[in-house]
Design a protein around this nucleic acid. Structure first.
Lengths: 341, 341
DNA sequence: AGCAAAAATTTACGTGAGTAAAATTTTTGG
DNA sequence: CCAAAAATTTTACTCACGTAAATTTTTGCT
């Protein structure tokens, strides 16, 4: 029916018989045009399936409709899940979430930030690599783009949203001490501030309970936590140098590897009779309920962290208020008791 | 030193003392400008850290520099890994990979395709939801954008790259029959063509070996394969209706859930003495080496699939040849023998 | 019905680059 | 050393839409 295919807003507007700017207004806020106009546009929209060109839309806009999301490692199910929830919220709010992963590398994080910068996003949700981050680059980025930092608290951006390690770790330590031998702490590679915070929280909690904290440092580097848990855990088990039969791992992925190492050596993990080791994790990764035994852990409050991060960013963006004090919003974890500890 | 900050290519060119189009040429291909000019630009680049605006770049370009990547479910480590490798290759080739996940939902897949379309990408790497896909929408998309389909073979796009289920499954069936009781097949929800192909391949392989194929259909829906494996596997174990003590799961995630179900019931999984069940998977998910016992599975050739998908797309894009025959490139899997079967 | 205020629409110009064609500079050949 | 050819740079126009200001239409009230 319609002659040639409609490619531009100009053609689309002409086909309906109204001016292009009115159509433009419609796309920016359907409520802002008269009801009759809206009806005309919407019926035409069904017929022609026209969609404005994203590049042109954002070319001359004061504020683009895009929100940058950058995570350190997308293949980590924790981040995959966070991203999933964040994308959803952004889309629902009419934004265009645009996703980057640093894949564990500083160079890629910097490149992603540069790309993002040239997109002039309205705001950004940023989980930095942490220790491997180039803080100068991030700092420059945050000067131009309102940014909420999550997960890994580098002292930049307009706000931080994350988990309260100083609540979650002591809670787990309490539980473990109450129900068996005080735990040693199997530390993750210090890729980000959480690593150190969790260790410090462990030490504090143990001392408060009158126990001697025992931290196991680990050689592995990078983000292959399961592999590190398997290799280093295996080494510790072989050398019989573990200072406790209760092992608190600083995250679930490490615990997953550690459990595998224990299994390889015929050691039963769990809190029941005949179990040689208790293993606990932290984060409640999507996979941790499927380990054998299912992993006792602390859940990070995914939903709250995502909701608060996104809400904070939207406030920032709408309010336009920047450079005030920098709130740090921490959510408490919940003890997830399964059978590994 | 430099007065105000440089924001546009115009300002940047002026600061160096050459014309803007020359700078533009440089950014599109540094080799295309005289050596002396290039040196001038590059030294200025260091001083001013200018980066062209992505929206403006792509606004009036014949071919944008962006490549769309769409996967059905990014929280699945298989796709997370594929995406990681693909992004890397696109970046190295000077493209801008832009990532979308359908999060298991048709509506989001369609929305992602629409967004992508409005970006006029040079090409797209598309792993469709499969059964839940709106094929009409995908078809319209592939009319405008050269597309390589991967993982899930819907009959669209310019090429398909994936795994050869009719090689991998029989290979596993052979192995299992050779080393113990012939397997039954624990089917994943039919979310995509792979599900049916793997089942058919199983049936063929069993018949060829003179065994009675036994397929276990499953109620669960969606992409929560581990949960389905746990719930349905548990039900089967409780009802004692499993037709074989060797279970070939149609993917690793299902197997991970099944192993958890077996563990819950005190059943030892493995091929050694005293084991009640053998469990095998398919895909060699990043997690499957950390199950207890480590999962015997078939590896999909991640690297080859990614390399071929990306290479095929680049050929397509550069050659400009479309609408020829539609090659289907299948890679063989490799048997990964661990201790679960 | 008439008129002012409010709302909606249109006019006119801006955005930051790509790109074809024209102009200039550099290289090559005799 | 000079003309022709090749390479490079510049001029001039384009892309598809946002947006402020001007204009028109609608609404609310008397």
């Amino acid at each position: 029916m319609s002659g040639r295919k409609i490619r531009t807003m100009e053609e689309f507007a002409e086909a309906i018989g109204i001016s292009r700017p009115t159509v433009s207004k419609y796309f920016n806020d359907p409520e802002s045009v008269r009801k009759t106009t809206r009806a005309k546009i919407e019926s035409a929209l069904k017929e022609h399936q026209y969609q404005p060109n994203i590049f042109a839309i954002n070319q001359n806009r004061k504020l683009t409709k895009c929100i940058g999301i950058l995570v350190p490692y997308l293949a980590d199910p924790f981040f995959a899940e966070m991203v999933r929830l964040m994308e959803r919220r952004c889309i629902d709010a009419g934004f265009w979430p645009i996703l980057f992963s640093a894949h564990g590398e500083q160079e890629l994080e910097n490149k992603a930030l540069a790309t993002l910068l040239s997109l002039r996003p309205t705001g950004a949700l940023l989980a930095p690599l942490g220790r491997a981050s180039d803080l100068e680059v991030i700092e420059r980025f945050t000067r131009d783009v309102p940014t909420v930092i999550f997960d890994s608290n580098v002292p930049l951006g307009e706000a931080f949203v994350g988990s309260n390690n100083f609540q979650s770790i002591p809670m787990m330590v309490d539980y473990l001490c109450r129900t068996g031998e005080p735990p040693c702490f199997f530390e993750m590679p210090p890729v980000n501030p959480n690593a150190n915070k969790r260790r410090d929280a462990y030490i504090m909690a143990m001392e408060k309970l009158g126990h001697d904290p025992k931290v196991i440092r680990v050689e592995g580097r990078g983000w292959d936590f399961e592999q590190i848990g398997l290799d280093e855990g295996g080494r510790l088990l072989d050398e019989r140098t573990l200072p406790s039969d209760t092992i608190l791992c600083s995250n679930d992925r490490l615990a997953i590897g550690f459990i595998a190492a224990a299994f390889e050596r015929g050691l039963r993990v769990g809190h029941g009779q005949g179990c040689a080791l208790r293993v606990a994790g932290h984060d409640d990764h999507p996979w941790s309920r499927f380990t054998t035994p299912p992993l006792t852990t602390v859940s990070q409050d995914y939903t709250s962290i995502v909701r608060k991060s996104v809400a904070t960013l939207f406030d920032l963006v709408e309010g336009g208020k920047r450079g005030g004090e920098r709130p740090e919003i921490l959510f408490d974890g919940k003890l997830i008791l399964r059978s590994s500890a």
